[in-house]
């Protein structure tokens, strides 16, 4: 029995496969979905509970119920939800983060876009990585495009625009240096082909990959600059809008709709939803992933 006592912690955060999760965490999950549009699956509810546990420790709050009050009735609730989001999405970024997105891109979307645009004189694809953080997503996209350069994209020019609000992130992204953690999902094939080692622990993205990408600072809420981001075929904006309030989010998404070419696609993070924010986009399912589509002329469903 003594062993049992020692195992018990003061934090009511159940670990994976541990006891039942306090129903309050399910309530918090639903609240976070309602406010931010990011959903935590039941089987990953323990992650939400862990994140709450960390916040509770920092705040000196003792019960999940008390923490729920901070998220709902307290005057600082908006700030607290954002703090909690930081905990929930912590350490998630890595290269090749969502294989189903990449499969959909290469197996379904690229063939479709290439066919649709084949009659245009300038064979060019424009991709925007909006909220690129430290560049993991942008380089992943660039490498996957390069993989197609002798096949589907033969004779095509690919431009990737990668933007972030944070100057320091943009600088880190430009350097393109990553350690084991960021490269945990990158196969040896890609590591050998597109990276050069700089020391024992770190790899740097090669110039031919960097050449595809233009990194710059951009505030997604800067309407006048958003108007200039035109002619996109694909927009990726993963786990960025969850930090925005409803009206700002709706405005950014309206911009994205305008920024996209007809027949273009917009990807959110794998647990995010656009529900009720925009009814012009079509929700499209691909195996294991979803995207939002701006209908093309030939679809007759504008």
């Amino acid at each position: 029995m003594i062993t049992g006592m020692q195992i018990a912690t003061t934090m009511p955060s159940p670990s994976k496969g541990g006891g039942p999760v306090d129903p309050v965490f399910r309530q918090i999950r639903d609240l976070v979905y309602k406010v931010c549009g990011i959903f935590q699956l039941e089987e990953k509810l323990y992650l939400m509970a862990d994140a709450c546990g960390r916040r509770m420790k920092q705040l000196g709050v003792h019960s999940p119920r008390e923490y729920w009050d901070l998220l709902t009735v307290h005057s600082s609730r908006d700030a607290e939800i954002r703090q909690l989001l930081n905990e929930v999405t912590i350490g998630e970024t890595c290269l090749f983060r969502s294989p189903p997105q990449l499969d959909a891109l290469r197996k379904v979307i690229l063939p479709e876009l290439v066919e649709d645009k084949s009659k245009q004189i300038v064979k060019r694809l424009r991709i925007w990585s909006a909220g690129c953080s430290t560049g993991e997503e942008s380089y992943t996209l660039a490498m996957n495009m390069l993989e197609e350069s002798d096949r589907l994209l033969k004779g095509w020019t690919v431009e990737i625009l990668a933007t972030d609000l944070n100057d320091r992130s943009v600088e880190t992204a430009k350097a393109g240096i990553y350690g084991d953690y960021a490269l945990r999902s990158t196969t040896d094939y890609f590591k050998r082909k597109y990276f050069s080692p700089i020391d024992e622990k770190k790899l740097q993205v090669r110039p031919e990959v960097k050449k595809l990408i233009t990194f710059s600072r951009l505030n997604l809420q800067d309407d006048s600059r958003m108007l200039f981001m035109k002619g996109m075929d694909l927009i990726f904006c993963c786990n960025v809008l969850i930090y925005f309030d409803g009206p700002s989010k709706a405005k950014v998404i309206d911009h994205y709709y305008t920024n996209l070419n007809l027949g273009g696609y917009f990807f959110l993070g794998t647990s995010e939803s656009l529900f009720k924010l925009n009814d012009k986009f079509h929700l499209i399912h691909f195996p294991g992933t979803i995207a939002y589509w701006k209908p093309s002329l030939k679809s007759g469903k504008l």
Binding site: V108, E112, L283, H285, F286, P287, G288
Partner: peptide
Amino acid sequence: MRGMGYGYYERRRVDW
């Protein structure tokens, strides 16, 4: 589309 198909990748898009 969500992992309960016939064991292979279906190259398609579904617009419900």
